[in-house]
Amino acid sequence: MRIEQFLYITEIAKTGSIATAAERLYVSSPGISLAISSLEEELGIKIFERSRTGLEPTETGKNLIIKSQEILNCIEEFKHEAKGDSSDIEGHLSISAVPAICRSIIPKTSAELNAKFPGITLQIKESAFSQVRKDVLNGDADIGIVFNLPFFHKENQLLTSTHIIDSSIMLCFRKDSELANKDIPSVEDIYKHPIVASYLCEKDRKNFLSQVFREFNNLNILVHSQNSETKKYFISQGLAIGFEPDIIIKADPFYQREDFVVKPVKGIDLKISYYSIRLKSKFFSAAGKEFLKELQVQANNFK
């Protein structure tokens, strides 16, 4: 058996496809097929079976894939130990993150990391919550950054998570709104005003609003949008009010305008917690550790 065979079966387990694994590893599909057949013949077992959705590991195959990943992790650790000097840390990292983190903490994190470790290259993808999880689980992202509201909490045994920052939900409106005359607007005040709701999917929107407002069906939703930038145009014209995490408010110059007001809401104490996630089974490189370390430093600067 050969090291590349371990790499092939772990990649196929992530993608369910020999063709996709071949594309990711820059080898030919026939080459991978031959290597897997050879390994199965040598061990006298079947590692994969075909299903309607692609290749699925057999029960024996699942255990072998776990062992293969452990071997690959040990090889990566060996390479890291051989380098020794942390100033020479290099490598490529793929990051998948929800918009709030992409637009607030990650830009400064990337700049600082580049200054300290020019050998580390980043590929950053802004995605919806569910897509970030898929990217990490499929091996398309080394690190994912997600939010974890109470109704999204569902621990996945394949993932390990690290808390990054908590962000309060704030009410945003124009300075000439009657809400500006109130020290702290109440939930009852909000029912009187049109709302612009920008969420990445319908389920997210309903979950958030029903979590905050008891009388969800009585809300006056003027605009539904999957683009968080859309709300700015309606709020700036005084047509609606909206909600935003305070990390976005602190990072976006739009919310610093003199004609704009940002306040908490009486009766609402909702925080969004943001976490980094990664595969437990995958070797966590020195570059990844440095990225998360810098991400935490920049997150602390937002508090």
Rank of each mutant, 00 (worst) to 15 (best):
S17I: 01
E290P: 08
N148H: 07
R174C: 08
V262P: 01
S28Y: 14
L179C: 03
L25H: 06
K280A: 00
E81I: 15
D135L: 12
R174Q: 10
R257S: 14
S130P: 15
Q131K: 15
Y274I: 08
R50Q: 00
I190W: 15
E229D: 12
S228A: 10
N63Q: 13
E90P: 10
F78Q: 13
I45M: 06
I221W: 12
G242C: 08
G61N: 01
D142L: 03
A19E: 09
A287I: 04
K263M: 05
S198Q: 14
L295M: 07
A35E: 01
F152G: 02
A299T: 02
S225P: 11
N300V: 00
I249D: 04
Y26G: 04
S68R: 10
M170R: 07
D204N: 14
P107D: 01
K271W: 09
L64M: 14
V262M: 10
S228K: 13
Q298K: 10
P253C: 03
K67P: 09
T60Q: 13
K266V: 04
K134A: 10
D135R: 14
I106V: 05
P30T: 01
K231V: 11
V27C: 00
D183L: 06
V98W: 14
K232N: 08
P150S: 00
A100R: 12
R2Y: 08
